[in-house]
């Protein structure tokens, strides 16, 4: 099935693509302690970078010069220079950093530290720690509102999305969601906040102004038991019309009409799909498949998986440089 998808996808891809802009993706490999660099022109890994232990959360800095990767078992965030593709520095996070987000200016980094119920604030320019915010048990998902005023942190055992005022660094609201919230994503116009609950098996749609849940996306895949559907990574197109949700061990990405919140399609990808990132032109969506050690490439407008790229062991996070 998978192979067939891939082959027919390849044909579409070969026919449809003309030499386009090449983009560079960085993928963290949780088990092999490496970062794979993917060139989207060739759709292959062009470099592999050795990093610290258990790399997971990964993001480009706003200026595109560095890639930050949380190496949880080393209790820090490493800084990769994209020119030399080498680790050149590290940032002082708290213990076991996993996911993080930065403000629009790229000056402040907010890190979820799973081990001590805190979010750490780091000054990116001076690379120093500015302080901590106490949140719920096992902080994980991080997102910043489009206007930069609100930071969202999700806590996995407390089962909440915490709304943090970035000016005062105080929690201003808490929204209870389903079990084990792992990821948070805003629509660009700040009209909705989506939070995935891995064990609860749902994605909560939250009104960022009223700070209440206005709806829930549920998943129903024939032949698959409910426990296997575990939503994690989320990506929403810039126009706010289409959402993609990684469903973990269900080995599928759900395509969601982001206006009606109805699931329109399930795309079969690799095993235990974690996180995802669009190419900057939004033509493709790349998703990491934790257990099958590869990255699936989804053609966004065709809503088809067109290719798979072998990376390191247990790929987890993925990020693109913004042009």
């Amino acid at each position: 099935m998978w192979r067939r998808c891939l082959l027919s996808g390849m044909a579409v891809w070969l026919a449809a693509t003309t030499p386009a802009l090449a983009f560079i993706a960085y993928v963290s490999n949780e088990k092999s302690n490496t970062v794979s660099v993917i060139d989207t022109d060739k759709w292959t890994v062009i470099a592999t970078i050795k990093v610290g232990q258990r790399p997971r959360g990964i993001e480009f800095t706003r200026n595109g010069k560095f890639v930050l990767v949380a190496v949880g078992d080393d209790d820090k965030i490493e800084v990769i220079d994209t020119a030399t593709r080498q680790v050149v520095d590290s940032l002082p996070s708290g213990p076991d950093p996993e996911l993080f987000t930065q403000d629009a200016a790229g000056k402040t980094l907010y890190v979820a530290n799973e081990n001590d119920n805190t979010v750490t604030i780091i000054d990116l320019e001076n690379r120093v720690r500015l302080g901590d915010i106490q949140v719920g048990v096992e902080p994980e998902g991080m997102a910043i509102s489009p206007d930069g005023k609100i930071l969202i942190n999700t806590s996995e055992t407390t089962n909440m999305a915490h709304f943090i005022d970035t000016a005062t660094r105080q929690i201003v609201a808490n929204v209870l969601v389903d079990a084990r919230p792992r990821f948070a994503e805003f629509k660009r116009d700040n009209s909705e906040l989506w939070v995935s609950s891995e064990i609860g098996g749902t994605v909560s749609i939250i009104d960022p102004v009223k700070r209440t849940i206005t709806g829930k996306i549920e998943f129903n895949i024939p032949g698959l038991r409910r426990e296997a559907i575990q939503p994690v990574g989320i990506a929403i197109t810039r126009d706010g019309k289409t959402g993609f949700i990684a469903l973990g061990p269900a080995n599928r990405v759900a395509v969601v009409d982001a206006t009606t919140h109805a699931v329109t399609k399930y795309l079969l990808v690799g095993q235990r799909v974690w996180h995802m990132a669009f190419t900057p032109d939004e033509k493709y969506l790349l998703v990491t498949n934790g257990v099958s050690n590869d990255v699936s490439v989804i053609d966004v407008s065709a809503q088809k998986v067109i290719k798979t790229i072998q990376v390191g062991e247990l790929p987890w996070g993925i990020t693109f440089a913004q042009p």
């Binding site: 201003v172 209870l176 849940i213």
Partner: peptide, 8 residues
């Protein structure tokens, strides 16, 4: 209540 609580 409603399961949604503002902490203040």
């Amino acid at each position: 209540g409603l399961g949604v609580v503002a902490s203040h």
